[in-house]
Amino acid sequence: MQNQELKIALIQTNLIWEDPLQNRIQLAEKINAITEMVDMMVLPEMFTSGFTMNPENVAETMEGETISWIKKLAKAKNTAITGSLVISENGNYYNRSVFVLPSGEIETYDKKHTFTLAGEHKVYKAGTEKNIIHYKGWKICPLICYDLRFPVWARNVENYDVLIYVANWPKPRVNAWDALLKARAIENMSYCIGVNRVGLDANSHEYCGHSAAYDVLGEKLTNITPSKEETEIVTLTKTHIATYRNKLKFLDDKDVFSLNS
């Protein structure tokens, strides 16, 4: 099915430290409170636990309770739901983005740039491949938090339409979050969406949200209140992308290169 519009709910929320059950309960309330029909709902990074370096306390498998829960919600709400959580697989832990369709089909992306400042690289195995998700005629590129600082990884060589970052991005560096989300939209001539958590975690790191959506010209489309639990719905249009890509043709002049992981 080819949709000319894509309606997306950005769910900016606090997270309960290392408590998947309680996070599922509170997120289900927020998801079920959305009465408007949407095509996709976006949750923050590590939405079952907060940004923990104790994966053994919260890790699940792809057949675990959270995946079962999110499949049921996606089916009941007839929408795709995406966010990242801690997954245990083949003896490794991953910070994995899941994109769950109403049909129960799941697309995944493992975070490429693990956050060395917090020691994420010591406990989580880094991903090596981007995954462009085809959904309702749109091409969507899911990335995670620290990936935002690396424009080469996000470079739009696949002609994707929407770039999505889910995050636990702390308040002291939120200016970088704001600037880089806008930059990724402009340089890739794509919509760019960032969903960040709010609140304090167990390490006393504060998160102030600043979740937002930007269009291909870097215009902000949302007005989510910083530091508040809030959901906002934004509508993306194919005509906006086509109009400015055809008019400006900036992507035609992009540098050609290849990545060696």
Rank of each mutant, 00 (worst) to 15 (best):
M189I: 00
L163R: 03
I67V: 14
T79E: 04
K7L: 00
M1I: 13
T13S: 15
I164C: 06
D215P: 03
F250K: 03
I25A: 12
T231Q: 05
Q4A: 11
W138D: 07
N260S: 14
S103G: 05
K72S: 11
S227C: 15
E230F: 00
K249T: 04
T48L: 13
M46C: 00
A183I: 03
N32R: 13
T79Y: 03
V58L: 03
E158M: 10
N203D: 14
T114E: 14
I81H: 01
G50N: 15
K228H: 13
S88V: 11
N175L: 13
T108W: 00
N14L: 10
P226V: 13
E63Y: 02
D178Q: 15
G127R: 10
S88F: 05
L221W: 02
G119F: 03
T13N: 14
A28M: 09
I233C: 06
E230S: 06
K220P: 00
S204L: 12
I31L: 14
K7S: 08
D110E: 08
D201N: 15
S258T: 15
V157T: 12
A80Y: 08
L217V: 08
L73D: 01
L10P: 07
N14A: 15
T82L: 11
L236E: 01
T13Y: 01
A202Y: 07
D215R: 04
I233N: 01
N131A: 04
V256S: 15
S97C: 14
L73T: 02
T82P: 03
W169Q: 00
E105A: 11
A28C: 08
E158R: 01
S68K: 13
V256G: 01
M189R: 07
E206H: 10
N168K: 07
V123T: 08
M1Y: 00
V157A: 09
K75M: 00
Q12F: 05
C145T: 02
Q2M: 12
T79V: 10
I164M: 05
Q22N: 15
M37W: 10
V174F: 04
N14G: 11
E229H: 06
T243Y: 00
L148E: 06
I67Y: 00
T61E: 07
A118N: 10
L217S: 02
P151Y: 14
N57T: 11
N92G: 00
A74P: 02
R96K: 12
S103A: 12
F257T: 09
K238I: 09
I31N: 04
K247L: 06
T61N: 10
S97P: 02
N54T: 11
E129F: 09
M41P: 08
V58T: 12
Y135G: 04
T35G: 05
N223F: 09
T235A: 13
E232L: 02
V216Y: 02
S258A: 13
H134M: 00
F115V: 07
G50W: 02
N95M: 03
D252G: 02
Y124H: 07
N159C: 05
A76C: 04
A185S: 15
Y93M: 11
G218V: 08
Q26E: 12
L181T: 02
G209M: 05
G83R: 08
M41A: 10
A74N: 01
T128D: 09
A28L: 08
